[in-house]
């Protein structure tokens, strides 16, 4: 028998699993027996999705969703006691990080954060990281005992398929009584139904301060749609209010590693490069020939985005029809 890998799956406010579930379960199945923990209402939606994505066993715990993180950690602690896993995998999302932090502190376990892969050798579970903006590949492990791993959303391509006879078990949880913040009101973010998510996207088109305005930034969206790409941005574009903060690529934003990255009106500051320099192919359009982004670009175009990009979109459309 292989060792258990406990996976905390996150649910959206509407009760289905978030998109990180497939990668987490894919990663877990590759190194052991995937035991999923779903914390939420028992309407069967999330546990069914977990089984479809490869969970071999699902633990279902109810929790007070108005209390931030603590009930989830109480459930995680109970699940850990039940299955004695070799590793606990969570998403490196805001909620996943909070749960990982509290849980690791409670059990005094080591944490490996922002992993882009997990492996195992004869000594135990290893986490792979892409450090300092992709400048280094680092592997980490626990000196002894289980490792808590937060996994970068979108970084894992491995997918698992459903196994026959996957069981759903109810997990009783004793509340720890640790004080928690209250969620007074929650507003789900409406994701674009047509565009891919930035994390894990195969192609990304990003815009910077060079787009000049919210109206100007629409050009980034047009090219993204022509390429079936996700939309990203520099911090300057976020600060200027052209796009929501969730689109920020870079050191303090999202790290992406797509097949194609197109930077429009972005100078290529070191903090921006830290979030995109591992892309396979980089294209940049900037009117300043000295812009540092050109040092990374496979194809650099010195020109005005407002003339180059509409011409490119028209050419793509012409070639298609």
């Amino acid at each position: 028998m292989t060792e258990n890998i406990l996976v905390l799956l996150e649910t959206t406010p509407s009760g289905s699993l978030t998109t990180s579930a497939a990668g987490l379960l894919g990663a877990a199945r590759a190194i052991g027996t995937a035991v999923a923990l779903v914390v939420g209402d028992d309407d069967g939606v999330a546990s069914g999705e977990a089984i479809a994505a490869g969970a071999e066993r699902v633990l279902l715990a109810r929790a007070d969703r108005t209390q931030l993180t603590v009930p989830v950690v109480d459930a995680l602690d109970a699940a850990f006691a039940r299955v004695s896993p070799a590793a606990v995998l969570l998403s490196h999302s805001v909620d996943g990080r909070d749960a990982a932090g509290r849980f690791a502190a409670r059990r005094r376990l080591p944490v490996a954060v922002d992993a882009v892969g997990v492996e195992r050798d004869e000594r135990g579970v290893l986490a792979r990281h892409s450090a300092y903006g992709g400048g280094y590949d680092v592997t980490s492990a626990s000196t002894f005992g289980p490792l808590v791993v937060t996994v970068r959303p979108g970084a894992i391509d491995a997918r698992a398929t459903a196994v026959d006879g996957a069981a759903v078990e109810t997990l009783e949880v004793l509340p720890s009584g640790v004080p928690a913040a209250t969620v007074d009101h929650i507003e789900p973010l409406v994701a674009s139904s047509t565009r891919p998510e930035l994390r894990g996207a195969a192609a990304v088109v990003s815009g910077g301060r060079g787009l000049g305005s919210v109206e100007g930034f629409a050009l980034v969206e047009h090219l993204a749609d022509a390429l079936g790409a996700a939309v990203g941005a520099s911090r300057a574009a976020v600060d200027a209010g052209y796009v929501p903060a969730a689109a920020q690529v870079g050191q303090t934003g999202v790290s992406v590693s797509p097949k194609l990255y197109v930077a429009l009106g972005i100078s290529g500051a070191i903090q921006h490069r830290a979030g995109m320099q591992t892309a396979q192919t980089i294209i940049a359009v900037n009117k300043d020939p000295e812009a540092p982004i050109f040092a990374l670009a496979d194809l650099g175009i010195v020109g005005d985005v407002f003339t180059v990009v509409p011409q490119a979109i028209a050419a793509l459309e012409a070639k298609r029809s």
Binding site: E10, T12, P13, T18, L68, S93, V94, D95, P153, P179, A180, A181, T182, V183, D184, H185, I186, E187, P188, L189, R199, A245, A246
Partner: peptide, 14 residues
């Protein structure tokens, strides 16, 4: 205001 990947919430802590 707490913004996550899936929602924006108003939270308060004692």
């Amino acid at each position: 205001t707490r913004t996550t990947e899936t929602a924006t919430a108003r939270v308060s802590a004692p």
